[in-house]
Design a protein around this nucleic acid. Sequence first.
DNA 1: CCTTATACGGAACATTGTTCCGTTTATCAA
DNA 2: TTGATAAACGGAACAATGTTCCGTATAAGG
Lengths: 206, 206
Amino acid sequence: MSETPPGKGASAARAPRRVRADAQRNLKTLIKAALDVFAASGVDAPVREIAEKAGVGVGTLYRHFPQRSDLIVAVFRSGVDCCADAAETLAEEHPPLEALSRWMQHYVDFIATKRGLAAALYSGNPAYDNLPAYFEQRLVPALKSLLDKAGAAGEVRRDVDPFDLLRAVAQLSNSAPGDSEHTRRMVALLIDGLRYGATSDHKPRQ
Amino acid sequence: MSETPPGKGASAARAPRRVRADAQRNLKTLIKAALDVFAASGVDAPVREIAEKAGVGVGTLYRHFPQRSDLIVAVFRSGVDCCADAAETLAEEHPPLEALSRWMQHYVDFIATKRGLAAALYSGNPAYDNLPAYFEQRLVPALKSLLDKAGAAGEVRRDVDPFDLLRAVAQLSNSAPGDSEHTRRMVALLIDGLRYGATSDHKPRQ
DNA sequence: CCTTATACGGAACATTGTTCCGTTTATCAA
DNA sequence: TTGATAAACGGAACAATGTTCCGTATAAGG
């Protein structure tokens, strides 16, 4: 955002040295490692395990994420961002209904990696206070856009609230942990439900 | 329940020595201490603190509750039992509406001591799997009986689901932790809501 | 009163979050 | 290219906490 190249600073302070390359690399590596470890062992996984997986000392981890919760938040947000971005990509590359369907599975996969997150959310730790808002703020518009496109094409009904759907899928994902096939089938069923009573009254002109 | 006095056992085994008095005493003391500590510091309070408050070594605590979660479960169940029993007592000692109202406040106080329990419930630890069922199984009938009595007396409407009410109160209690007065007012409001549209069609004959 | 199964206490251990600090290294200017 | 230096690194050390172990104390029963 604010690169501040070597040239003299606008105000008084000495030109702040650019962020070191290894630091940037480690930041990405850590988030990736945490993503994997959380997916494999839940968000309660020990920090050391993550540091080791990233090939980094715990000191380095703590330099980037002063608190364990900061790492969890970062991973969660990056996952949410990834999901939200995928909505755009999918909408460009696929017909409306398929884009919607693929996105749903994408979302299911995301939720699946969040074992134990619910407990953290309910822990009362203020570090997580903003997560639900961020979740809703990024994902509701993403899904809404997909639903609207599919609705306009007359492929799904238009009376479904995106947030309801997000929550429902999250609940389905948590009901039978480990049986991802069951979740997949139920989500597919949910999507079929969307098609029931679809009207093409706003069918696009071409 | 099964006292097994010194007399020869019914089947084969040697008459098992009676449970030592100090052990019984410590068990009660521990639950009481845990109740207080959990109420003061939430269910995440350290075991040592509870043992100390009970005037007992951690070894003793672990003899009675092999896992930390066992203690939490025991305290929770004893609280639920206490609430359920209070329903009967209150129904005997007060007119229907007041019994209902008093029980609600009793229940609010119970919920208030359960800070952090939600997180435990969502933790995925199977130790807590049965708690919600126990909760519902004991409290729904208790509340239902109070509601029915008040409903039969024509003091409250009869279309309210006890479980809904329990959940609503729990949610109100968690929304503003620390402001118990707010909770109290909102619960009072909820009860007033019960009175709206009450019908005395089944008014008792005397 | 003696024996003994039972229970007790708390030190010791294991795990995990977090801090500290000596060492390494990327960046920048000369 | 090279040297100075701020930034970043690694991991030992610390602290908090769940859990185990075992020597000691004691209530129950004869």
